[in-house]
Nucleic acid binder design. Structure first.
Lengths: 244, 244
DNA sequence: GTACCGCGTTGACAGGGGTCAATTCCGGAT
DNA sequence: ATCCGGAATTGACCCCTGTCAACGCGGTAC
C-alpha cells in the first residue's frame, strides 16, 4: 500500500541565469515576475534536480527545508493516514510551486510520477531573496491563491456526485491544466496510475477502472492506451460531471 | 434546497483606529503585523458591518469587490452545483480572512451563520494600502498558506473513512479551531445546522444526525443540546477519526 | 398559552460502490 | 521474440449510506 521506493539518485547542480532565461515555464511560475537582472539573484540559489520514476523529493515529517519549482514532469503530493489509507492531495505539473506550508515538517510526501525535473531552493535562502525582491512575495501570494482555488475545486469534486461524475471532472481538470501550461488539451495524458487517481478522488481503484470503461462504452471518451484518453464529447462529459 | 434569505439589513460604518486597537482578534488576523501608527492607515478604509442570521455578505458570481476580516460570529462559504446540490467550502470564524480569490467574481457565496460581524475592505483600496505597507502582503501570504492547510485537511476528511469518521474529525476540528481563537475547546459549539455539516462533509443530513446519535450511544460524546456537544473521550474520538 | 414552522431524529428500503478474487493486459528487460 | 511482474480489468457479493417518509422537538410570533 505504501509505495515510496526512493530508488535511484537525483542529479543536482546549480546553474547560471541563462538557463532561467530559456525556462519554458518561467512566465507562469514564481520567477515570472522578475526582470532578467533580478533573475540573476534567484538563479544563484537555485539548484536543478532530476528525479526518476517514483522517487521521493521529500517525505511527510521530514524537516521542511526546501521549496520546489517544477520544470518538467509531474509530482504527486500525498499523506498516509493512521488506518493505512492514502490521500493524494494533488498532482503538481511543470510551472507549479511546491512549498506552501508554514510547518516545521512537510505535511505531505512529494514523489515524482514517471520522472520530474525541479528547481530547488533552500527555504531560508529564498526568504532572504524575497526580502530583497518583494515582487516575489506578491507573485507567491497569487500562486497560493491559485492553489487555494484548486484545493476548493478538489473539495467540490470529492464531496459531490457519483464516482463517474468525479472521474469525468478529473479528466476535464487534467485537460484544462495541460492547456494552461501550453500542452495539448485533448488526448489527455495520464502520468499517474488508476490507484493514484482513486486516492485523489476518494474511490477504490477498481471503481475508477469501471468508470473509465463505462465512459468509453457511453461514447464520451476513447481509451487510446492505458495512459492516454481522448475526450470525444466535451459537452456531454461536462454535463456528466455536473459540478459547479 | 437553496436557502439564502438575505433578509434584514446590515449596519455599515467606518471607524477610527481606537476600535482596531481593542480588536480581540487583531493578533491573529491581517492587521496583526502592523504597528499602531500603521494601523491608522488601514482603519481609514475599513468598514464595520453586522449581518443577521442567514444574511449573505455576497453571492457567488457577484463582482469580487470586497474582502472581509471576520471579527465575531461565523460565515459559511458555499457553492451551488448544476445538479442542485450544495458544497460547503468552509466555515470562517472570528480572526479569519475572506477574499483569497483572484477571479473577477466571487467563486462562492458567503452567508452569516447565526449572525456575524466583519471588517470590510474594498479590494482596490486594500491593494493600495498593501503597496504602502508591504508587511500586510507578507501576513496575507501566511494566512493564505494557513487556509491552504485547512483546505487540505478538508480534502482528507472528505476522501477517507466512514461517515462516523468524518463527523468525528469535524468535531475535533471545531474544537481545535475554537481553542486557537481563544475559546473553550470542550463543549463544542455548533453554530451551523446538521445540513450545513452534511454539505461540508459530503454526506446526507440524515446520516450526520445518525452519526451524532451513534457517537453518543458509544459514549464518545454527549449531546448537551442540538448545538452543543461535549467530547467525553478525546483519544477514542481521535482514534475513531483515524485520519492522518 | 398556543399555534406554527423549521430543524432534527428515526425507520424502511434500495442501490452504489467497497471488498475480495480471478484473469488479462502491457511495458520493460533479457 | 519471449518472459515476467505490476497494473488494469472484470465479476460476485454485501454493506454503508442516500433517499423517501413519518414523527417529534423547540423556539418564535401572536
Amino acid at each position: 500500500m505504501n509505495k515510496s521506493p526512493n530508488t535511484g539518485h537525483s542529479a543536482s547542480f546549480s546553474f547560471d541565469v541563462s538557463r532561467c532565461l530559456i525556462c519554458s515555464v518561467r512566465s507562469i511560475n514564481m520567477c515570472g515576475s522578475l526582470e532578467p537582472e533580478e533573475l540573476g539573484r534567484l538563479s544563484k540559489i537555485a539548484r536543478c534536480e532530476t528525479f526518476s520514476s517514483g522517487e521521493a523529493l521529500f517525505h511527510e515529517g521530514d524537516a521542511n527545508g526546501s521549496v520546489y519549482n517544477i520544470t518538467d514532469g509531474a509530482v504527486r503530493l500525498s499523506t498516509m493516514l493512521k488506518n493505512g489509507r492514502r490521500q493524494v492531495i494533488g498532482f503538481m505539473f511543470a510551472g507549479d510551486f511546491i512549498g506552501f506550508s508554514g510547518r516545521e515538517t512537510y505535511p505531505w510526501t512529494g514523489e515524482s510520477v514517471r520522472g520530474a525535473k525541479v528547481c530547488r531552493f533552500a527555504r531560508n535562502e529564498l526568504a532572504r531573496a524575497v526580502k530583497e525582491l518583494p515582487k516575489i512575495e506578491h507573485r507567491l501570494l497569487e500562486m497560493a491563491t491559485s492553489d487555494l482555488s484548486s484545493a476548493q475545486e478538489h473539495i467540490t469534486m470529492l464531496g459531490q456526485g457519483s464516482a463517474a461524475e468525479k472521474v469525468s471532472a478529473f479528466l476535464l481538470m487534467l485537460s484544462r491544466k495541460a492547456a494552461v501550461r501550453g500542452g495539448v488539451d485533448n488526448p489527455v495524458h495520464l502520468p499517474m496510475t488508476r490507484e493514484d487517481i482513486a486516492d485523489y478522488l476518494g474511490l477504490a481503484f477498481e471503481t475508477v477502472s469501471r468508470c473509465f470503461t463505462r465512459l468509453e462504452n457511453q461514447g464520451l471518451i476513447a481509451i487510446e492506451s492505458t495512459r492516454v484518453v481522448r475526450i470525444k464529447n466535451f459537452e456531454a462529459l461536462e454535463e456528466y460531471s455536473e459540478d459547479e
